[in-house]
């Protein structure tokens, strides 16, 4: 009996290693991972230079890890294991109350923040003819600290906003996102599973910003509000792989008095006929529905309707 189990152990171990390697080479290799939103390492090139400068070793290692068989399942198991213990976070994302996920925010390096604000004020002073305003909006963890897990370490974003405000006193007009959003915190301003704010949050900010600048803003009645997705699981969900979350809904605010807009995307040399790309709603990264995602340079072109502008 002892002999049998011993050989079973050895065979099982070697068999597992062999099977995994087999899968690694046999399964088709993806070039792009929708889950991780990045290109996966392609086959490493064995050249003399690559070998000498360690590039081959690095490429080979990332190839094996990137194409590890059933990679997303392994990641999911780890997240489930963490959730079954009393762990409240995974990969830097807290699992908060009421289905909210939060990105961990700890004390930043103020020197760096000072550098960033200096760059921004420098940019503003480089273009004195253009009137600019800087609005710093919090992320969901800054606005809803009461929904964090018990005793979870978190640095108050209000402090950072105040610091930036002080730094910018000399250069630029500063609007504190907290002043705008805190009074309306009970509304769904942020997605529960993503780092962006919802269209509702964007709308509230638009109203407050327009008021500050003295523009006339459209009220909610002037928009046709449609729900385009009920199954949105955003960046926080991707990173943390937490289960049992109810997906977010994505809404579109289309002005009833709509103006046709064309968007020219420089990096793909494409022109979109609307600000929304519905093809993304079928993919994992549904948020790229807005403006087709992130691009290097976008130009929005609108036909001239000066006689209709009220402000």
């Amino acid at each position: 009996m002892k002999q049998k189990t011993e050989s079973l152990l050895v065979l099982g171990f070697i068999g597992t290693l062999f099977l995994n390697s087999l899968f690694l080479f046999m399964l088709p290799h993806q070039r792009f991972s929708e889950l991780e939103n990045r290109y996966l390492q392609n086959d490493p090139h064995l050249t003399w230079d690559n070998l000498l400068f360690k590039k081959y070793a690095e490429e080979a290692e990332s190839f094996v890890t990137d194409h590890f068989p059933f990679r997303d399942k392994w990641v999911w198991v780890k997240s489930t294991a963490e959730q079954y213990s009393l762990q409240q976070e995974n990969n830097g994302i807290y699992k908060g109350k009421e289905g909210y996920l939060f990105e961990k925010f700890l004390e930043p390096i103020y020197k760096k923040i000072q550098q960033y604000t200096e760059s921004v004020t420098q940019f503003a002073s480089n273009h004195p003819k253009v009137s600019m305003t800087f609005m710093l909006a919090p992320t969901s963890v800054g606005l809803y600290p009461e929904r964090l897990p018990w005793l979870a370490p978190s640095y108050p974003q209000k402090k950072v906003n105040r610091f930036v405000d002080n730094q910018m006193k000399k250069g630029l007009e500063f609007i504190d996102g907290f002043d705008i959003l805190s009074p309306r915190a009970s509304e769904p301003i942020y997605y529960r599973t993503d780092h962006h704010w919802t269209t509702c949050g964007a709308y509230l900010t638009y109203i407050a910003f327009a008021e500050q600048k003295g523009w006339q803003s459209l009220s909610q009645k002037d928009f046709l509000i449609q729900t385009v997705s009920n199954s949105f699981l955003g960046s926080y969900h991707t990173r943390s792989q937490f289960n049992g979350l109810s997906p977010d809904t994505i809404q579109v605010y289309t002005p009833r008095d709509s103006i046709p807009t064309k968007i020219y995307i420089a990096d793909t040399n494409r022109t979109m006929t609307s600000m929304y790309d519905t093809s993304f709603l079928a993919k994992k990264d549904q948020y790229s529905y807005f403006l087709g995602g992130v691009h290097a340079l976008m130009k929005s072109l609108r036909p001239n309707r000066l006689n209709k502008i009220n402000y």
């Binding site: 889950l35 991780e36 939103n37 990045r38 590890f68 990679r71 392994w74 780890k78 995602g293």
Partner: peptide, 16 residues
Amino acid sequence: TYLVDATFNPFLYFRF
């Protein structure tokens, strides 16, 4: 699973 998770590196914004 823990080892694989350590290499998990999702990007918030798509890198072009």
